[in-house]
Amino acid sequence: MDEGAFTKVAEEYGARLYAVAFRLLGHRADAEDAVQRALMKAFAARAAYSPQWAVSTWLYRILTNVCVDELRRRRPTSEIDDAHRSTPSPAGAIGARIDVARALESVPREARVLLALHYVNGLSHRELAQIRGISVNTVKSQLARGKQILRVRLERGPHGPARRSPR
């Protein structure tokens, strides 16, 4: 992969990588920064790229590594924003988004990362396993566990009775 190829990769995959980074980190500037760092790392480590891998899988692996390390430095939202959390969410589509965002906070980080990769870009279990260096069965159990936690949270609500039934 030479420098011309790097620009082509940035053009071809930049938007898809950005979508994942934005959903994982929640801020536009952080997402853009993470994608740029990931592309630079991919470029620096281009000798290690194996053609057995899809380029996208290789890039998602590096991007996820960058994003996960960024998440490590962040305090859990619960510590920052407890007061805000206890306020009821508005009705409608925005309310549903806030409910999902709150429920996702109780999902373990690794499962949350897998959920984001799976739902943002529709990656298969096999691709997720390659990206996170785990078995397909672990991917399945993590996704199932994450969704189970979400179901329970959305049914009960964080502080009260259910506002909606997800089934």
């Binding site: 938007a15 950005y18 934005f22 994608v35 589509a93 988004r97 739902y119």
Partner: peptide, 18 residues
């Protein structure tokens, strides 16, 4: 979840900046 994780629209000229 599909609605929540709906892909974010990349900012304009993202590739150039990257």
């Amino acid at each position: 979840l599909a609605e929540y994780f709906n892909p974010a629209v990349a900012p304009k000229r993202l590739a150039t900046r990257l």
